[in-house]
Nucleic acid binder design. Sequence first.
DNA 1: ATTGATAATGAAACTCAGTTTCATTGAGTG
DNA 2: CACTCAATGAAACTGAGTTTCATTATCAAT
Lengths: 171, 171
Amino acid sequence: MTKTAEVILFPRNARTPAQFQQWLATVLQTFQDYLVTRGLTLTHQREAVLRCLMAAQRHLSLEDVYAEARRKDRTIGRATVFRTLRLLQECGLVAEVGSTDGRARFELKADRPHHDHMICVECGRILEFESPMMERFQDEAVKRHGFVALWHRHEIFGRCAACRRLRGRAS
Amino acid sequence: MTKTAEVILFPRNARTPAQFQQWLATVLQTFQDYLVTRGLTLTHQREAVLRCLMAAQRHLSLEDVYAEARRKDRTIGRATVFRTLRLLQECGLVAEVGSTDGRARFELKADRPHHDHMICVECGRILEFESPMMERFQDEAVKRHGFVALWHRHEIFGRCAACRRLRGRAS
DNA sequence: ATTGATAATGAAACTCAGTTTCATTGAGTG
DNA sequence: CACTCAATGAAACTGAGTTTCATTATCAAT
Ligand SMILES: [Mn+2]
Ligand SMILES: [Mn+2]
Ligand SMILES: [Zn+2]
Ligand SMILES: [Zn+2]
């Protein structure tokens, strides 16, 4: 049987400031291109939201983004953050991720391959992993049922290694 | 490469009335056993909620169960349905399933093996399938990260065969 | 039967993440 | 400078889910 390859994607590999700027420029361009097709413009508020997500080393909630963006610009509104997150999802740059506390989290899809999530019910940490074999058998299953997949969500809830070590043998 | 085995579980295989009664008795007993350990009792309201889920040929929302149970007993309350659904989840008889309309759906885990879901974004239909291979590679991935899985949710959103036929070539 | 303790219930109120409204501001055009 | 319309943020609204609370059912011990 073929070997599975999995990779932890967070924390994101360090980028030099120069590399970050490069990446930022690319992603901003992608966003702007989308906005143009909709007759919209890339405002500084919209850019701020995107920058927050790009700088983050974890999955942010709407409220997280709002708080973070607000540190730079005291007047930015929750509504704008909400609307920008929707735009970013529409153009495929951002995806929603499950959580254990009832608040949706968001992640950049920009520069990363598809992956699934393990979510720790203890500490809320989200572990990202890839499993090409799982994706492969999923494709098979979908085809077999004449279904056409648009997107999927595969989230495994449980306890992460760190929390198990901390709490001892109790599961 | 090994062949994957998938089975559509809904609509549930027909049961003779006698078989249904048998099944009902078993499941009710399981529920009651759990309630006893908590010092609670199996009331007729609680039984009604469970009966609704057992009789249903589709995934019901809280509101669905409430409406259905209400047809039998005009005074049953939304709060009781809510609380009963929670009890049923706690004892492992019922699980929550995703949806496309923002309302959680529930399904009996009672007599069925683990399975995942394909959810049609067009008609809301929920297709159930099993993929032992997927589960296998999932287990591998989980172990590799020192994670302990408690439960998981694997939901594929897209268009079902029926809706694609209806709407023509457009995806 | 009567009492007292506690489980159970349902109507209504509340929560809160998410979403919309609306008056105002800003950016661009002729 | 008008004029148009995208964009914004404060505040109001929404609605699934959840809790509160006054009332009712259950049942064990008199
Ligand atoms: Mn996947
Ligand atoms: Mn599964
Ligand atoms: Zn953890
Ligand atoms: Zn469909």
